[in-house]
């Protein structure tokens, strides 16, 4: 169903990423040393890549409607602060988890509300949110923990359950839910419609503002799970420094997955494959014995090469479209 909805350019990107992922997995299988298990590599992939995919799904939702969220890392930091403060006050784990999910959801909704009411481009609102929420995370930690010195230690294993034991399952359940929703649900299609033309949506009797808010609502839920997994994997939460620069890496994975950065085109599946592709490249490099220092450069080069090539191929068509 969704396959027919995607244009040939996006479908080709999905096939490329599928083939690329399989190829990389094959490469990793060949490069594995004696004593290492391939099943273990696969088992570890889910939890490792879970925060990126979940935050990627959140970013994809907001990019679908023609917005963007540059404050995702700072929102996760606030969620982390809230979680850490409650852990510090010995609250039961489920309350801490709930606070983490709720903080991310509320702030994402708040972003949507600001964009809707102030009529300011999402890139500016969330660019302002980036330092603002980071400051909020630090102030929450300052207020909640009397002698806060920059990090919050979480030693008790009871608070690490989602990140260390259930990350793969949470990821799998969310991916399945997202893909089913995308294939059969109406809302993701409305997001794409708004991303294509807000004016057309309005003329059709839809409410673009409400569609935008619903995208930020869904993004808040995805982001809540991303925050939960990212935060509960850590022994020490550093609200001021955790995940700095994460937002742009997420945008990188989303764009690599074929989603149009200006909205109206894309798929959750592409984002998932894009995030796995970047992860498997770094893993393949590690198993090939390449220095860890090369990994970031290669990630950047891959994003540039795939998107640059795609744009170059379609350049002629784009110029002809201009004339039409």
């Amino acid at each position: 169903m969704i396959h027919g909805r995607l244009d040939y350019r996006h479908r080709r990107r999905i096939y490329f990423l599928l083939a690329g992922n399989l190829l990389l997995l094959g490469l990793i299988r060949v490069l594995l040393k004696e004593g290492s298990s391939f099943a273990e590599v696969l088992r570890r992939a889910g939890p490792d890549v879970a925060p990126v995919i979940l935050a990627g799904l959140a970013m994809t939702s907001v990019i679908f409607v023609g917005a963007i969220d540059l404050s995702v890392a700072s929102i996760i930091a606030v969620a982390g602060s809230a979680f850490g403060v409650l852990v510090h006050h010995d609250q039961p784990p489920w309350i801490c988890y709930f606070a983490c999910l709720a903080a991310a959801w509320v702030l994402s909704m708040w972003n949507g509300y600001l964009i809707r009411t102030l009529k300011i481009p999402a890139i500016i609102v969330t660019l302002a949110g980036l330092p603002f929420y980071r400051g909020l995370a630090l102030i929450v930690a300052d207020l909640g923990i009397p002698d806060f010195g920059g990090n919050i230690s979480v030693y008790d294993a009871a608070y690490h359950q989602p990140g260390k034991f259930y990350a793969g399952w949470i990821l799998l359940a969310t991916i399945i839910a997202a893909l089913i929703w995308e294939a059969f649900g109406r809302t993701p299609r409305q997001w794409l419609a708004r991303g294509n033309s807000e004016e057309a949506c309005r003329l059709l009797g839809m409410k673009p503002e409400r569609i935008l808010q619903s995208a930020f609502c869904a993004a808040g839920i995805f982001l809540g799970f991303a925050a939960l997994i990212a935060v509960t994997r850590l022994q020490a939460i550093e609200p001021g420094r955790m995940l700095v620069g994460f937002e742009l890496h997420i945008v990188g994975a989303v764009v690599l997955g074929g989603t149009n950065i200006f909205g109206g085109e894309g798929s959750f599946g592409g984002t998932i494959l894009g995030a796995f592709f970047l992860y498997f490249i770094s893993q393949a490099l590690t198993y090939a014995g390449a220095s860890a220092y090369f990994q970031e450069a290669i990630t950047g080069a891959v994003i540039l090469a795939v998107i640059g090539l795609d744009c170059a191929i379609h350049r002629r068509q784009k110029q002809l479209d201009e004339l039409a």
Binding site: T299, G300, G308
Partner: peptide
């Protein structure tokens, strides 16, 4: 892309 590439 170049931000990540140059940093790398």
């Amino acid at each position: 892309g170049t931000m990540i590439f140059y940093r790398g």
